[in-house]
Design a protein around this nucleic acid. Structure first.
Lengths: 336, 336
DNA sequence: GACTGGCACTCCCTGACCCCGAGTGCCAGT
DNA sequence: ACTGGCACTCGGGGTCAGGGAGTGCCAGTC
């Protein structure tokens, strides 16, 4: 049904359309690509491809443009991975050098990804299931307001508010803090959660402080599961100013909502996933695609990262960049 | 030179143009506003206002639109503060209730500001000169990587990486951590900086750890001066999709750079400042205005917040909202 | 002297119209 | 199975005229 030539035609059309963003006709196709057939033949192929739903015409007597289904076929079967340029490789391998902590790694990664892909980049904070609690502190800020600070072995620092009993003095808070630290130090998030859940209430002031701190830590651990995402390269949207309604506007709106972003990145998965147009089940994003990948250790995905752009994007390059960045960040975090 | 009627005309033109975003002519003006003069008279006034540089014509035989100078006069002398609606007041006073820590306050503030002004909001992290260090911790992450965590009385938590000497054992790190905490607890940032600068090197391993921790804290205190900014409400730019090149694109580009944002917010100042068009000395932002205000205690500005939008904005409302939010956040932080 | 009505003029916007070119589908011929 | 040829379609761009909203100016009025 779809012989090699038809596939070649589809590939050529997508390549051309990505480059020019104009509907492409049979004549231009045979001129620009080495298809050793006449325009008439190509036209027949194009008609077939349109019947099958891989192409569409903006209007009669215009050239064809790919449909989401066409891009899908292209991504699945026709795209040859475009090797990264040496400059890109260099950028990727030097960009993270000297990153101080996890915040810094994430910030740099999002910039890097936006820069090499020239698209809007999204990076999810790593959720390291093997990470271990290195430190917990309960600090009094004011009379009845305390703050719990949690440090994991990945260098991630999170904090949460805790309500302290008014009658507790500084020493009791400090003691409770030390006990809390002793309880969970060295445990993974899951283990710590279980330990703290089993904690008995004590009828002393110190016990009340301890409970307050433990509650705050548990909230922190639970909250950590709904991880944060960071966005960058929004100015790359200006390259699509002509498609304001279909591309710029919906992306800007989506970027404002963490929840939407998390859904866009999709299920954790170690290899590069592409979601094209309507495949993002989000109204308004039907003209945009997401290229995402998990990162972390082999067989242990910590979080996702990816880019958002118009369906008319250069998939081979983007996929190569996303994969390279994901691998590099994973390796960097695993080592450091 | 500019009598009351001419000023009234200018005010009416700006009001109308802000509402309709279309050049406004003499006829429409007398119809829509109660100017008890004939269009011809108004025309003469408009001609004068144009000569003086307050108005301009997109082309002959079109209506007039305000210039930056016109907006400036309007803001300085003609704008009556528009009182907030009850709904806005309610939104402002409930939005922050239950905020956990400073991060949360800032995040909520930026959302609030974006929502009430329907513009892009920018909030700078509070830099509280009267804030006091509540807690410092030095935590070992890996063999030679440590992390310093700093908690201030405002609830702000910051962290920095520290290089630990390899030969230090866990007990030495813990001891050094305790000594470091004892040194700076209760001090302001400035005092702590001075104390740590005077610290003598000790030839022991523990001394080396202490020095490493102290260096990290000093870096943190210094870094804190170049405060972070948070942005929100970018989707409000979609309301100006028709002015993509003049408004949306430059704002998106500016938002990507912290430095630019900080410059946009301008010098610390407790009252509301408006910078119109070219008054922002940033190429490309010549069609956008910034409305900013400091927030904090009376006579002690902690940081700035504000909004960015097209020069053609509703200054009275925006200024009122920015001022109200700034006051409220200042009060909230001072209390909590 | 300040304001107004009237008038001629300017210029943009809109819609109608037409032409051109790129593209198509189809069919008969190799 | 492929190709050349042909009639057809349709959008984009260019031109043109009319209408409308606006202006500047001037002579007249209170």
């Amino acid at each position: 049904m779809l012989d090699d030539r038809k596939l070649a035609v589809l590939r050529a059309i997508i390549t051309d359309y990505v480059r020019t963003s104009e509907p492409v006709g049979s004549k231009a196709l045979v001129d620009r690509y080495q298809l050793d057939f006449s325009p008439a033949t190509i036209r027949n192929d194009m008609a077939t491809l349109e019947e099958e739903g891989y192409l569409t015409q903006p209007h009669t007597s215009a050239g064809r443009i790919p449909t989401d289904k066409g891009y899908r076929l292209f991504v699945d079967r026709l795209a040859q991975v475009k090797p990264l340029t040496p400059a890109e490789k260099r950028a990727i391998s030097t960009f993270l050098a000297g990153a101080a902590d996890v915040d810094d790694v994430v910030a740099r990664t999002v910039r890097l990804l936006a820069q090499v892909t020239q698209q809007v980049a999204i990076v999810q904070y790593p959720l390291v299931s093997t990470a271990v609690i290195r430190h917990v502190d309960l600090v009094r800020l004011h009379a009845d307001r305390g703050l719990v600070v949690l440090v994991t072995s990945t260098g991630r620092v999170t904090q949460a508010h805790a309500d302290l009993p008014l009658e507790a003095d500084d020493d009791q808070v400090r003691l409770a803090s030390a006990r809390l630290a002793a309880l969970v130090r060295g445990l993974t998030a899951a283990e710590a959660g279980r330990v703290l859940a089993r904690l008995q209430d004590e009828p002393t002031t110190e016990g009340a402080v301890l409970t307050a701190g433990a509650d705050a830590v548990r909230a922190l651990l639970a909250h950590d599961l709904t991880t944060r995402v960071v966005v960058g390269g929004v100015q790359n949207l200006t390259r699509f100013g002509d498609q304001f309604e279909t591309t710029v506007k919906p992306v800007l709106e989506a970027l404002e909502e963490q929840v939407v972003l998390l859904r866009l990145l999709g299920e954790a998965s170690s290899d590069v996933k592409v979601r094209i147009g309507h495949e993002n089940d989000h109204a308004g994003l039907s003209s945009t695609s997401v290229v995402a990948s998990g990162y972390g250790m082999p067989h242990d995905v910590w979080a996702m990262l990816g880019v958002v752009g118009p369906t008319r994007m250069d998939y081979p390059s983007t996929m190569a960049s996303v994969r390279a960045v994901a691998r590099y960040v994973g390796r960097f975090l695993a080592e450091g």
